[in-house]
């Protein structure tokens, strides 16, 4: 990768300072806003490290959606943003400092020569059905991880949206659960401009993922961002976005593709090179739809269900 530049030193120091500041911020709102800033700066760090795919995922999911979820929750938990006295402050500080020290020492002992798998990935990239190495690892070489991860995402939706409690006491009476939106002309205009753009960007990322940075997760997150905007502006999400068939689609399809290979006498998830491209495109489209639906539904949370 590139040389270490002054920019990197500044970026790294800013990340650590922001992290410190946002944890210590007396106001939770300030903390969350700083967290979103942190995520955006971190995306630059990913680009500097030659990992634009991670940068996209970080900006869309890490900073964007997690920040939106936190801000939304803060609004729904009024009067509770007072922080009590920190507990076990010093013993934990000593432990954390020791952990940090050990980690720093371990990093400094790493040999200068890389020990990774870039060579192995490059050697078999052609058999994977996609031309972009990160997408090849994500969907094929380590597709099994991604399959289980789609399961995690589906399960989070299940727990939040479906695995409801015996209904919350009269949700319609609770202001925090009402799907009420701060609609105004500016927001409405913004949404009507932004949502089509987000859909275009999402579609582009999905398409680009096969040969350039991008892919299902980033595209799904962008589409989910459109869903979040729609919700914020008071447009109800279509029922289908919350229905089980849509949110489970990516997980189900990938699992089905994997088992079909095993049923045909190959290993689980072993795709024939000739079919790999088409099957992976199918899986990616399904995954994008699921990811967008799950992430948007996670944001909408229980409000949309009640």
């Amino acid at each position: 990768m590139g040389e270490l530049e002054a920019l990197d030193l500044l970026l790294g120091l800013a990340l650590v300072a922001l992290a410190w500041r946002l944890l210590a911020a007396p106001d939770l709102f300030e903390g969350i806003v700083l967290f979103v800033t942190f995520g955006l700066l971190l995306s630059f760090a990913w680009v500097r490290l030659g990992a634009p795919d991670v940068a996209l995922a970080e900006a869309a999911i890490g900073a964007g959606l997690t920040g939106a979820l936190l801000l939304d929750a803060r609004g729904a938990m009024p009067g509770a943003s007072v922080e009590g006295p920190a507990r076990l402050r010093w013993p934990v500080a000593v432990l954390a400092a020791a952990t940090g020290g050990v980690l720093v020492a371990a990093v400094l002992t790493l040999p200068a020569a890389p020990a990774g798998l870039e060579g192995a990935v490059a050697a078999r990239l052609e058999e994977s059905g996609v031309a972009h190495p990160v997408t090849a690892v994500l969907l094929n070489f380590r597709g099994y991880d991604t399959l289980l991860e789609l399961g995690v995402l589906w399960l989070a939706w299940l727990a939040v949206a479906a695995a409801g409690p015996r209904p919350d006491p009269r949700p319609e009476l609770r202001p925090d659960l009402r799907a009420e939106a701060p609609t105004g002309p500016v927001l409405a205009a913004l949404v009507s401009q932004l949502v089509p753009l987000l859909i275009l960007v999402g579609a582009y990322l999905l398409w680009a993922g096969a040969h350039a940075p991008g892919g299902a997760f980033q595209a799904g997150a962008i589409l989910a961002g459109g869903g979040v905007l729609l919700r914020l502006s008071g447009v109800p999400l279509p029922e289908a976005a919350r229905a089980a068939p849509v949110v489970g689609l990516g997980f189900a399809l990938f699992l089905g593709v994997g088992l079909a290979q095993a049923a045909a006498g190959r290993r689980f998830l072993e795709l024939l090179p000739a079919q790999a491209h088409d099957l992976l495109v199918l899986v990616e489209v399904a995954a994008t739809v699921s990811i967008a639906a799950v992430l948007a539904a996670l944001f909408a949370g229980r409000r949309s269900v009640s």
Binding site: L117, N140, F268
Partner: peptide, 13 residues
């Protein structure tokens, strides 16, 4: 031992 995806460790799982 089952090589998921047919790749085999360390590239695969």
């Amino acid at each position: 031992r089952h090589q998921v995806g047919g790749w085999g460790a360390p590239l695969g799982i």
